[in-house]
Amino acid sequence: HYVEVNGKKIQATSAEEAEKIAKKFAKIYNATVLDLGNYYKVT
């Protein structure tokens, strides 16, 4: 599981952790979290 933010991949140990990381970055960048199955993308 990982999160992609601005083209950078951030490794996460679980889907739950990946979701938390994605939501945190989405809040910082006022962005949207896309759940793409095996990873989250912040756009």
Rank of each mutant, 00 (worst) to 15 (best):
H1T: 08
H1S: 08
H1R: 06
H1K: 13
Y2F: 09
Y2I: 07
V3F: 03
V3P: 01
V3Q: 00
V3T: 02
V3Y: 03
E4Q: 07
E4T: 05
E4Y: 08
E4N: 04
E4I: 14
E4K: 04
V5I: 14
V5T: 02
V5P: 00
V5S: 00
N6Q: 07
N6F: 15
N6M: 14
N6A: 09
G7T: 02
G7R: 03
K8D: 07
K8I: 14
K8E: 11
K8A: 09
K9G: 02
K9N: 06
I10A: 01
I10W: 09
Q11K: 12
Q11M: 15
Q11R: 11
Q11I: 12
Q11Y: 15
Q11T: 12
A12H: 02
T13Q: 13
T13K: 14
T13D: 13
T13W: 10
T13R: 13
T13A: 13
S14H: 03
S14T: 11
S14Y: 03
S14M: 03
A15T: 07
E16G: 09
E16Q: 11
E16V: 11
E17Q: 10
E17K: 05
A18N: 00
A18M: 06
A18H: 00
E19I: 12
E19H: 14
E19W: 15
K20A: 13
I21T: 04
I21V: 06
I21G: 00
A22H: 01
A22E: 01
A22K: 01
A22W: 03
A22L: 04
K23G: 06
K23M: 12
K23P: 00
K23R: 13
K23F: 11
K24R: 13
K24C: 15
K24I: 15
K24Y: 15
K24H: 15
K24T: 11
F25H: 04
F25L: 14
F25P: 02
F25E: 03
F25Q: 04
F25I: 13
A26W: 05
A26P: 00
A26C: 02
A26N: 03
A26D: 03
K27G: 09
K27T: 12
K27M: 14
K27S: 13
I28Q: 11
I28L: 15
I28H: 11
I28Y: 15
I28S: 06
I28D: 09
I28G: 04
I28P: 04
Y29N: 06
Y29K: 06
Y29T: 05
Y29E: 06
N30I: 04
N30L: 07
A31L: 11
A31M: 14
A31D: 02
A31T: 10
A31P: 00
T32R: 07
T32E: 11
T32D: 09
V33R: 00
V33C: 06
V33P: 02
L34S: 07
L34T: 09
L34W: 08
D35T: 08
D35H: 15
D35Q: 15
D35S: 09
L36I: 04
L36S: 03
G37V: 07
G37D: 06
G37W: 05
G37T: 04
G37S: 05
N38Y: 13
N38G: 15
Y39A: 06
Y39H: 10
Y39G: 10
Y39I: 09
Y39L: 05
Y39M: 06
Y39P: 00
Y40E: 02
Y40C: 07
Y40N: 02
K41A: 08
K41R: 09
K41H: 06
K41G: 03
V42N: 02
V42D: 03
V42T: 01
V42Y: 01
T43I: 15
T43D: 10
T43A: 09
